[in-house]
Design a protein around this nucleic acid. Sequence first.
RNA 1: UGGGGCGUGGCCAAGCGGUAAGGCGCCGGCCUUUGGAGCCGGUAUUCGAAGGUUCGAAUCCUUCCGCCCCAACCA
Length: 566
Amino acid sequence: MPAADDARDKSQDFIRDIVAADVRAGLAGGTVVTRFPPEPNGYLHIGHAKAICLDFGIAEEFGGYCNLRFDDTNPVKEDVEYVDSIKDDVRWLGFAWHDREYYASDYYERLYHYAEQLIGKGLAYVDSLSADAIREHRGTLMSPGKDSPHRTRGIEENLGLFRRMRAGEFPDGAHVLRAKIDMRSPNITMRDPVLYRIRHAEHHRTGRAWCIYPMYDFAHPLSDAIEGVTHSLCTLEYVDHRPLYDWVIAHTDTPGRPRQYEFARLNLSYTVMSKRKLLQLVEQKHVSGWDDPRMPTITGLRRRGYTPASIRDFCARVGVAKKENVIDVGLLEHCVREDLNRRAPRAMAVLRPLKLVLANYPEGQSEDMNVVNNAADPSAGTRKVPFSREIYIERDDFLEDPPKKFFRLAPGREVRLRNAYLVTCTEVIKNAAGEIVELRGTYDPATRGGDAPDGRKVKATLHWVSAAHAADAEVRLYDRLFTTEDPDGLAAKSAVDITTLLNPASLEALGGCKVEPMLAAAAPGSRYQFERLGYFAADPDGKAGAPVFNRTVSLKDTWARVAGQT
RNA sequence: UGGGGCGUGGCCAAGCGGUAAGGCGCCGGCCUUUGGAGCCGGUAUUCGAAGGUUCGAAUCCUUCCGCCCCAACCA
């Protein structure tokens, strides 16, 4: 057996095991149909990415289909802005739904028909209790509920009332349609769940055509059935709803027989994932918008510089199981580093410039150094980078009084300027306050390119930018959005608002950064590795000649760790 | 105090009666014109706990403990 088959046979997760078994058993003619069912009431985040990779991934692997279905049954919360962003994000992640773009609202007429069918079977009734009264009748976790006085209404009366609900004869809240199941069920979901409510509201797709709207528990299983979905994958909080899902399917003459399976949602350390909380951050301006590079939204990650491939890889590594989890954000960072290391062209940029003047380099002279764009990718080619007498190096790369393990530049010490020359620091110039303002040094003309003919070695290689040729840039450094690993948990435990746990240092904008000439016109979205610093993506805020870069993620930094240990 | 889900190393996660995969992290070493990348090695005598069944248990049984979800005319 070839290795590929071997890998395919290996169990990947419990859901794929189930699907594989169903396919073997010849279920639904062997064609697997899944669906990704977002409600268009917010932007997609990395948690949705996990679901998207699962839904579309399984369809792809088993040669089936995945429908993009908007679960738009609540007109007051939904908007086209969100359906557009969701489509953008799914597409950007690399998945195609082809012509399978569906809306629960497209099924309103059929859904209504199924509702009448239930009424006709005596399995649904119109209740005229107030929302409060319904809640009271529902009972509690510990005690059973009580039947509504309207539970015994006759079929004809129910039908008449329901039709008048649809006709708009009643105000919001006057009546609801309920399933007649069991008010004493230990599973509260089964205590005569509401199927339809009256909402005189404008729907983003159906306008004013309807004033009654189906509830999730009714619309979802039926939409699945209508579309021929075979495997309806959702998160753990719906486990209790599965009996109702099956009940709806069992009591209507639907075409398909979809099955629901549940997996644990993704949680990421140092951030929050609920749409409500993300919306709060946006509305209260704690971030610049849904696409703020600190947000765990797909659009935020995109602006931050994450690649679709890295997010897909992350989702694959995280796995699918039923255990509550909090994934270390470090894993996500690892995934982008790995991807960008392969594909990002290198560039030189100095974030906190310190001028170094090479006394023995002729004034007014400059030369083009030949530089490899990406050692990890020969096809990336080479480029010219200008070098001259005055250059900028990183302030952090010089220490007047270096500790033992610091082997960058220091007085009297020789280091390599990457792809250029070996240079030695000969003098430190300070201002009246005693701050270092400039360095003087010499270069060794025999070391052009960075190698010494006599074979002498240096411990450090520094990145640099020629002062005369440099472009100015703004660079935005990001840190975790929250100061604590589990903001949700801490906020709940200590009864504080989530915003009190925000990291005040999550954004640091650096002005006056010096970047090599080629970066001056970086196209928004283009990604680079700034050598020795990290991966950066050009932000749309930048303009030609005045670029803005977002740090996607830093490079692994052994020195930072060593320095931090002391 | 009802119903449901879950408990395998710091974080994920395989395993499904035959004697603890893998990834991230971490710790060493090699290599290096990015203290990057790469390469090599190490990192659970033990699977929430206690009993029991068995030649043999993370896997079966019993009891207990812990965490999460459910009482929107939200999804």
